[in-house]
Structure formats: structure tokens, C-alpha cells
């Protein structure tokens, strides 16, 4: 990254404050009536220069945080996509939609079978057909229950990460990272500056890393129903009878839901063994990985907040030592 690109970073209000303080240091130095006050001004000026440098460093750090996060995750053997701070809310929103869509599709499938069963089963003669559809619904509900719970847990995580991402995105775009360093200079704002700086130092790396990990999990395991239907369709292709039925359905112009339900009925009946095996392996892998990811993310975020609180105190003490002007 060259100097020009450094200048393009979103310093925001932080650099303005640093500039004002720099000007104030200069004015104070030139207007200082006594050598003692002039020395105070020099100290303050040095502090501001260091602050200005740190401002740039923090802005740069925020811009490279995501790639550092991905590298750390990679070093720990965790696969995570690289997401820029400003992109986290959107990516998490998309992930949420994907997972929510999957969750709704699961429920719609179960509901479609159950409702069809209830309607058909209302007539005494067709009661067993109603029971057949009802049992297919409970079969779907049962086999998908742990997966649905994992999806709900994942949705909660994506919401939390999106909210944090929103905060970090605003902080990045408005240069709050730089502002936090600027706030460390005056003693009155040092505490909030320390907390902000600590939060930014920790979460500039942790949040993209965790969000990237979540995104990878969602992309790999958040859409098992589609994968399951595809796998069933593949199995169905080996059965000539089911194949014919499916081609008839395909030309009948029915909706995707109807065709999916028909696919499950036809292929499920044609190859129950394949249905069981495919469902078992896909859903079990997806469920466990999503659950594991949820727990890891929860623990990582907890540790992140603890370290933020711990580091804030240290930064405040450091800033006091660095920027406190001794009045002679």
C-alpha cells in the first residue's frame, strides 16, 4: 500500500480532530509566554504527532484487519472467506436470508404434506392417504428437527454478527478508529477513546474472521434441502418408472413446490433406501458443523469482549503515560 492509498483511507473526523489539536499545539507553543509553558506545548505537540501517526496506523490496521483475520483462521486450520468490514452486514444479511429460506422451505415442505394429508384425510375413504401424507410430514419434521434447530442458532448468530458488522462498518466508514486515537489525547475523553480503540483493535480482526467463518459454514451447510433434493433426483434417474413420472411432471407446468413434493413422493417411493442414506449423511453433516460453528462463534465473541474490556484499561493507562502533559 502506497502513501496515496494511505491517504484514501476513511480517516473521517479523527484526522480533523488530530489536525485541530496539532494546530492548537503549535498555537500554544508560539503564544506561550514562559519557557515552562513552551515546554508544555512542545510535549503536547509531540504527543499530538504520535497521535496523528497512530491515527493513520489504526486506519490502516482497520483496512487490513480482515486479511489478518483470515490468515489467523487459516493458521488455526479454519476455512473462512475474507470479508471487508463494510461488507459484513450485507454478507450476514444474505447468509441470514439463505438460512431463513432453507428453514422456511423445510417447514413449508412439512406443512404442505401435513395440510394435504389433513384435507385428503377428511374423507373417510381416503383417510389412509391422508395418514400417508401426514406421516411423510412427520418423517420430514423428525429428520429435519436437529437441522432446523441448528439453522435457528445460525440465524441468531448471523443477526448478532450483522449488528456488530453494522457498528464496525459505520466505525470504519466514519473513521471512528482514527477518532478513538484522537480521543485518547485529551484526558477527559481518554476513557471512551481507550474503550473504542480497544474495541476496534480486537474486532477489526475478530469480527471479519468470525463472519467469514460463519459465511463459509452457511455456504457449505446452510442449504441441505436443495442438496438433498438434487441427490434424490440423481438416485431417481436410475429408476425408469420414476424417471417417466418425473418427466411427465416436468412438462405439466406445475410450481416448484408441487414439483419438489412430487419429486419426493416419486423418488422417495422409488428408492427409500437412497432417500434414507442421502438424508442421513447430508443432514447429519450439516447439523453438526453448523452447531459446532455456532458454539465456536459464541465462545470467540465472548472472549473478544473480555479482551476488549481488558485491553481498554491497558490502553487507557498507556495513553495516560504517553499523552499526559506534565504541568511544570
Amino acid at each position: 500500500m502506497g502513501i496515496t492509498s494511505l491517504l484514501n483511507l476513511p480517516y473521517g473526523i479523527g484526522i480533523t480532530i488530530a489536525g485541530i489539536e496539532l494546530a492548537w499545539g503549535l498555537i500554544k507553543y508560539y503564544l506561550a509566554p514562559t519557557p515552562g509553558q513552551r515546554r508544555e506545548a512542545v510535549e503536547e505537540f509531540y504527543g499530538i504527532v504520535i497521535g496523528a501517526i497512530l491515527t493513520a496506523v489504526v486506519a490502516y490496521y482497520m483496512s487490513i484487519g480482515p486479511s489478518i483475520g483470515v490468515k489467523i483462521a487459516g493458521a488455526m486450520g479454519v476455512n473462512a472467506t475474507q470479508i471487508q468490514l463494510s461488507d459484513i452486514p450485507n454478507v450476514m444479511y444474505n447468509d441470514f436470508n439463505l438460512v431463513m429460506g432453507q428453514y422456511i422451505a423445510n417447514l413449508v415442505f412439512a406443512f404442505a404434506f401435513s395440510a394435504a394429508g389433513a384435507i385428503i384425510g377428511a374423507t373417510e375413504v381416503l383417510k389412509p392417504i391422508g395418514a400417508l401424507l401426514g406421516s411423510l410430514s412427520s418423517f420430514l419434521n423428525a429428520i429435519m428437527a436437529p437441522y432446523n434447530r441448528a439453522l435457528v442458532a445460525t440465524m441468531m448468530n448471523t443477526i448478532a454478527l450483522a449488528a456488530l458488522g453494522q457498528v464496525m462498518s459505520v466505525m470504519y466508514n466514519y473513521g471512528i478508529g482514527s477518532l478513538s486515537v484522537a480521543l485518547l489525547l485529551p484526558s477527559r475523553t481518554r476513557r471512551i477513546g481507550a474503550w473504542l480503540a480497544s474495541f476496534i483493535l480486537v474486532f477489526s480482526i475478530l469480527l471479519p474472521m468470525v463472519a467469514g467463518y460463519q459465511d463459509t459454514l452457511v455456504l457449505n451447510y446452510g442449504n441441505e434441502l436443495t442438496a438433498w433434493l438434487n441427490a434424490i433426483e440423481q438416485q431417481c434417474a436410475n429408476n425408469p418408472l420414476a424417471k417417466t413420472l418425473l418427466s411427465l411432471l416436468a412438462t405439466s407446468g406445475i410450481t416448484w413446490l408441487q414439483s419438489s413434493v412430487a419429486l419426493m413422493l416419486v423418488c422417495g417411493a422409488a428408492s427409500p433406501l437412497g432417500l434414507i442414506k442421502t438424508a442421513a449423511s447430508l443432514v447429519s453433516t450439516g447439523t453438526f458443523n453448523l452447531l459446532e460453528g455456532d458454539i465456536i462463534i459464541d465462545i470467540a465473541m465472548g472472549i473478544g469482549f473480555a479482551i476488549t474490556a481488558w485491553l481498554a484499561d491497558l490502553i487507557e493507562a498507556g495513553a495516560r503515560a504517553l499523552f499526559e502533559v506534565r504541568h511544570l
Binding site: S135, L136, S138, F139, L140, A142, I143, P146, L275, I276, K277, A279, A280, S281, V283, S284, T285, T287, F288
Partner: peptide
């Protein structure tokens, strides 16, 4: 989960 799914699938 795989064992669970197999048993529930057969039960279904």
C-alpha cells in the same frame, strides 16, 4: 446425527 437420522428415517 447420522444414526439418529437413519433410525428416524426408517421409522418415518
Amino acid at each position: 446425527f447420522k444414526q439418529y437420522d437413519i433410525v428416524t428415517a426408517v421409522l418415518g
